[in-house]
Amino acid sequence: MEIDASDLNRSLPLRDQIYQKVRSMIVSGQMKPGEAINEMAIAQSLGVSRTPVREAVKRISDEGLVNVFAQTGTFVARISIRDIEEAYVIRNALEMESARRAAEKLTQAQAEVLEDNIAAHKTAIARGRYSDAIHLDDVFHRTIAEVNGFHMLWRAVDISKAQMDRGRYLAIPKPGYGEQTIQQHQAILKALQRHDGEAAATAMREHLNTSLRNTLEVAAVNNAFG
């Protein structure tokens, strides 16, 4: 297993950096459902001991992204409908309230940051840079949370939405899905700019509902469910 070790900062905790790397590979589909997680191979690829790898994999296991079977091994979990629906419930509740509150506080400078994000997102979709598009999507949502100063809220969303993200990587190349996201982000931003909290929350709910439908549809077609 080859994992890029060039950006590891060995003066910082390795387990946190390895966690981010392995988690990203699972969420993005670089590690497939059912694929074995070889801790020794990961450690050798990164040039580290097995201890921080084991700690990172334990953390990922706690998030339900891998399954550990005694005497058998550790494997990337298949995508679970129940986990996706649970992630949606958590994300919907937190992000609707985040949008509702942000509408009261949004400044012109913050609106321009969101406008720039949407423009960059459009470019990424047009050029087929889907990983960049998903990153920009996350930045859009995180920025709304940060309008409120709610950094822990985004952390909670980020942990819970991992299962939905796995479906997003399958869904976004499909024609029209990326463009639909752009249109919905624009609707959210317009409501925020009007300082209309209820409209912003409603636009956010419609956006997340669409994301859930697309995720379930594409994961089913790709037989990614466990």
Score class of each variant (00 low, 15 high):
residue 103 A to D: 02
residue 81 I to E: 13
residue 194 R to E: 14
residue 34 G to I: 02
residue 213 R to M: 11
residue 44 Q to I: 02
residue 208 L to W: 07
residue 176 G to V: 11
residue 43 A to M: 01
residue 68 V to A: 13
residue 164 M to R: 04
residue 51 T to E: 14
residue 161 K to R: 14
residue 150 F to N: 14
residue 10 R to N: 03
residue 216 L to H: 04
residue 197 G to V: 08
residue 6 S to H: 06
residue 133 A to I: 09
residue 151 H to Q: 13
residue 205 R to M: 12
residue 102 A to F: 05
residue 157 V to F: 01
residue 32 K to G: 04
residue 121 H to K: 11
residue 13 P to G: 06
residue 144 I to M: 03
residue 132 D to N: 11
residue 97 E to K: 10
residue 35 E to W: 02
residue 176 G to K: 13
residue 70 A to S: 14
residue 133 A to K: 03
residue 44 Q to E: 14
residue 185 H to C: 02
residue 3 I to T: 00
residue 226 G to V: 12
residue 84 I to S: 08
residue 138 D to H: 13
residue 61 S to K: 12
residue 191 A to H: 03
residue 74 T to Q: 10
residue 18 I to E: 02
residue 53 V to I: 13
residue 207 H to Q: 07
residue 62 D to S: 12
residue 176 G to W: 10
residue 115 E to T: 10
residue 211 S to V: 05
residue 42 I to K: 02
residue 95 E to N: 09
residue 53 V to W: 08
residue 127 R to Q: 15
residue 11 S to I: 08
residue 186 Q to K: 15
residue 122 K to V: 10
residue 189 L to E: 06
residue 110 Q to P: 05
residue 209 N to F: 11
residue 145 A to I: 09
residue 78 R to I: 01
residue 161 K to F: 04
residue 77 A to V: 06
residue 87 A to R: 04
residue 187 A to T: 09
residue 93 A to V: 12
residue 147 V to L: 06
residue 125 I to Y: 00
residue 137 D to L: 04
residue 97 E to A: 07
residue 107 T to L: 07
residue 182 I to N: 08
residue 120 A to F: 07
residue 32 K to C: 02
residue 85 E to K: 11
residue 39 E to T: 12
residue 107 T to I: 00
residue 209 N to Q: 15
residue 74 T to E: 03
residue 166 R to P: 05
residue 67 N to T: 14
residue 219 A to L: 01
residue 172 I to P: 06
residue 26 I to T: 09
residue 220 A to N: 08
residue 6 S to W: 00
residue 88 Y to I: 07
residue 11 S to D: 14
